[in-house]
Amino acid sequence: MTLFWQILIDGFAISSLYALGATGFALIFGVSGVLNLSHGALMVAAVVAAWAAGDQLHVGPYAGAAIGVVIGFAASLLTYFLIVRPLQQSSKIREEEKEIFILTATLLWGIMLQELIAYLYTNNAKTVAPIVEGVVSIAGVRTPSNEIFTAIVCWLVIAVLWLLVNRTRAGKAVLAASMNPRGVTLLGIELSQVYIAVWAMYGVLVGVAGVLLGMFLGVSSYSVGPLTASAFAIVVLGGLGSVSGALIAAYVVGYLETLTAYLISPAYRTIPALLLLVAVMYVRPRGLLGRR
């Protein structure tokens, strides 16, 4: 019975974190059709910034976490203005080729960030000083308070995002743009403004997800590739561009991994989720809730 609760609790925390990480990734693709392969690098940048603030500027855990989120936000906007936007607006690249150009550019940008982080702060793993410490007992399972904190913050941020998208004018424009970009421009809304709004939202999501990941598990510059790959896999499983699909897929992947780690072996943790992804590609290529 303890095992059941252990899997339930651990699976929930890690799945919530996956959900938060993948939501932003799905949002960007849904709205602007950009597959941002620098996703992992932006998350790692937020973690390393939060760690460095604590280690070198000796700020407290709250300030450290805030600095991490700000850097994630700034890095996201920098990615948009420096990498994505010039390619989107270029007249030298044919429209139908832009997607692949942006895909390649974000991949290379991610590698550049990864190397820069490794050069400045070595490739050793870093962890962010946790805001809450200690453990509590839930159904007989000794659970780190930080794990509960992680899950709560993830869901708060996702709830705020939901409110933003469904209840504010800017958010509704973002939602509309994901359904029909041309329609949005006909309504007199500047698409590039929508893009800036969505990259700003994404920046906050990446920053928060990164800092929480840094507190919960810790990351190194090596994590850049796997983090991007896991967000990509979750989003493909959920249906490219579907935020709710990404949320469901995050829990499917999170629990599948946790079950494998507990019941089979931690060494095979990621394998069943990848097999599931392959199976979904065969049976239902548009993913769980995909529209395209």
Binding site: Q6, D10, I14, L217, G218, V219, Y222, S223, P226, E257, T258, A261, Y262, P266, A267, R269
Partner: peptide, 17 residues
């Protein structure tokens, strides 16, 4: 005797076991 993959990030299940 537990051997885990060097790219393991979540050690919770290992420590629980």
């Amino acid at each position: 005797h537990i051997r885990f993959s060097p790219d393991t990030t979540d050690f919770t299940p290992i420590f629980n076991k």
